[in-house]
Design a protein around this nucleic acid. Sequence first.
DNA 1: GAGCACTGC
Length: 666
Amino acid sequence: MTQFWKPGSEKPRLVDDEEGGILFFSTPTSSSSSSRFGYSSIDKQRQGLPVYKYRNGILYLVENHATTIIVGETGSGKTTQIPQYLNEAGWAEGGRVIACTQPRRLAVQAVASRVAEEMGVKLGEEVGYIIRFEDLTKPGVTKIKFLTDGVLLREMMDDPLLTNYSVIMVDEAHERSLATDILLGLLKKIQRRRPDLRLIISSATIEARTMSSFFDTSGRMHKKAGDEIEPKKEPAILSVEEPIGDILVFLTGQDDIDSAVQLLTEEAQNLKKNSSGLVVLPLYSGLSRGDQDLIFAPTPRGKRKVIVSTNIAETSLTLEGIVYVVDSGFSKQRFYNPISDIENLVVAPISKASARQRAGRAGRVRSGKCYRLYTEEYFVKEMPAEGIPEMQRSNLVSCVIQLKALGIDNILGFDWPASPPPEAMVRALEVLYSLGILDEDAKLTSPIGFQVAEIPLDPMISKMIMSGSLLGCSEEVITVAAILSVQSIWVAVRGVQKEMDEAKLRFAAAEGDHVTFLNVYKGFLQSGKSSQWCYKNFINYHAMKKVLEIREQLKRIAHRLGIALKSCEGDTQVLRKAVTAGFFANACRLEAFSQAGMYKTIRSSQEVYIHPSSVLFRVNPKWVIFHSIVSTDRQYMRNVIAIDPSWLTEAAPQFYQQQGLNKVAY
DNA sequence: GAGCACTGC
């Protein structure tokens, strides 16, 4: 006989949760058990089920509470095991019957035959079932009875107090079907008249507290004097899957994540009225420091963290305590089109390798689960084994210059693990040649080429710095380079757009965003690097601190390269020429008859627009240079500066003579 | 009037 808790024996180990009276087990309570007939394979199987660890606990709670709410998911074995535990503990002695209701007929039949099989009895004898038009039970013999909740309702017409039953387990109560809800309401009434009756409500996590407060009649009951021992009126909640364990959800980007967080929070609050058991948090790189700290804060007791994240949690960041992962199957990936020279961030399906990595984020502390929002067939047949190597979807300018600096001359013949598209390679060589970083033999030029290779920045930025030093504005270009290296110096809050735009106007320069950045930087220094000042002006203080750090590093590098720090003292034309020297390849001209502010790139006639976050939005100067493109429904230029087209031929004569720019009327 | 996966140097 397997060992189980008996009334009067020592209380099993339970952990009391002060927030809501939920009882959880700290450790599995079962000790090794043996069968009188030795181990049978069915015994072993039964003991392997998650619910088995809670066997003693369940029996203890059912003994002592009028209502026990069991939280657990499909597969925990609660439906097949709990009725057997009750039977083993003697709840079916003296002609009493253990009932277990199901919302569906098929489930009733399937579970009944399974339990009969496990108990080694003929279906319809000790274990039986009733569905409409089919009664497979034997009065006086049947101890465990499975039935649909509708059938149990019918039985109440003949026996309103359901006197034959000692325990009624209402399974799948979270589905809240019509019949289940009627049944729950009636069972609550019966409980008042039948203190000997025990209810077990099996429910999903989300409904457990609702169920608990529904069945909690402890406030209304008066203790009768000298009365026999009655079970506690407040329901016990027991989870057969340890619910402590956070959830990590992989989505693609900030937008999706913010709306998902909002939806989940609202949903959780609707379900729980006053207090939600979920703490829903976003996670992406652009998050402020304070919000990031929340991710790592320990989960409050009785709560569960839901972290909705980008790919940042796939590899870069490890979160302890994640037990469940939800994988959307998508991520944002960079793609580069060498023809248009535009890099795009595109939502694309992930690879099997990524899917496995994501799944592996669950269960670092104990076994976990991953829910993939795509079919197994898709995973097996269609999902690529590995992603496309970054080499084949990137702009290669930095890559080429690095190899050159390492003395690899024959780049086109280089033996790559994954060869990049030749067009991308040609593009990169062309740009580096125009920048004066490579010579006709594709060797690094001296000193510019070698110097640029030494600066740990995009070669176009590095070239801007080098030119700035020649033009006498090294102070300014270093500041601009530092600011362009952080994601954004403006705070990322929605809903205060108007105030933010007004704040931006205080710094806005007609020449464009780069000059505006210098104004912000100046204001920040004048404020004494004040966080208050940043707050007032919608400037991201942490970003500005980062700018200061990067700027210090760049100053050290400049010193090493022999660049003297010199300011152009507000001569913005000099600064803009330096920007042009690095970014001439990103020059655009306003389409003459365009009403909508449409520009075309000089290099490949791509249709582009000034991003609404730019100070030049709606200003639409005839000639501009952009720092980068973001592609959404349109190609938007971010960080834009107005230029004089003559600077282009000045900065890169070969490049623009080929493009026929000198024939264009200014 | 729109919205920035990630990393490294």
